[in-house]
């Protein structure tokens, strides 16, 4: 009886397997932040974003660009540095329950990555299409680009690399080497950002009508395929979780 009571107390004091608070707050962070960004676009896209030579463009859009770039570099440095610095140096000796808990935390990161990829690759990328069909571009830093290329893409890169780093530094599953498809699913979408260089170079060099299916954009397509690397990540995770739960589910 006493032993049971002690066990119950230990369970009650123990951290939950899935930290639902982090899951909800992580998701809300993306939804609320991007909701605000969309509001900003709606107001200042039309009122200050049509002419890149106008003073208000500098105020509302170029300053937005400068600020976001600084914040992204700081966030990436702090977050990646923290995850690496606090890494578990005895990761192979953790208990199965702790390993299960860390898998849950890893999946909180992956859910955040899913939000980040959705907003970057889907929401703000197609939004850029309708902006270009409406506004004649006179700068590489048109409002939709300042959000799409230089905000939403860095954010999914920061989230994806954080997720990868968490797995690599805290989960025994990932100690046997570098998981190829995890690398593909993080580095592929990352390569979309450098590909912006090709895109902007092309749009500067050729006078083109706005066509989303233009071959100049195929670099984005190629690196977008890398998102399918998530299939490999899911398979690795299912394998690891099966090992942890198999005998209890049998």
């Amino acid at each position: 009886m006493a032993a049971t009571t002690e066990s119950v107390k230990a369970d009650a004091a123990e951290a939950p397997l899935l930290n639902k608070r982090n899951l909800i707050l992580g998701s809300l962070l993306y939804i609320i932040f991007y909701g605000w960004v969309r509001w900003y676009e709606g107001v200042y896209g039309w009122s200050a974003g049509l002419d890149s030579f106008a003073p208000e463009f500098e105020t509302y859009w170029m300053n937005f660009l400068y600020i976001e770039m600084v914040l992204e570099i700081v966030t990436a440095s702090v977050l990646w540095g923290y995850i690496w610095k606090t890494r578990d140096r005895k990761v192979l000796s953790i208990t199965p329950r702790e390993e299960l808990r860390r898998h849950f935390t890893h999946w909180v990161w992956l859910v955040c990555y899913a939000w980040a990829i959705y907003y970057g690759a889907s929401y703000f990328t197609e939004q850029d299409g309708t902006w270009h069909q409406t506004i004649v571009r006179d700068t590489d830093f048109t409002p939709s680009h300042i959000i799409e290329f230089y905000l939403s893409y860095p954010i999914y890169i920061i989230t994806g690399v954080s997720s990868f780093l968490y797995a690599k530094t805290r989960l025994p599953t990932y100690q046997q080497g570098l998981p190829l498809q995890y690398l593909v699913s993080v580095i592929g979408p990352f390569m979309i950002l450098p590909n912006v260089g090709l895109n902007e170079w092309g749009h500067t060099f050729w006078f083109m009508e706005e066509l989303f299916v233009a071959p100049l954009h195929y670099g984005f397509v190629f690196f977008g395929w890398a998102a399918l690397g998530v299939l490999g990540v899911v398979n690795i995770e299912v394998g690891a979780l099966s090992k942890l739960l198999k005998k209890d589910l049998a």
Binding site: F104, A114, V221, A227
Partner: peptide, 27 residues
């Protein structure tokens, strides 16, 4: 885990599929 995996799979595939489709057949 089933739900978290399905959610992640759905939205990551959505992102990759959407950028592929909008830039190859979007117009």
């Amino acid at each position: 885990f089933d739900w978290m995996i399905l959610f992640t799979l759905f939205f990551v595939v959505l992102g990759g599929y959407h950028i592929h489709y909008m830039l190859t057949g979007g117009d």
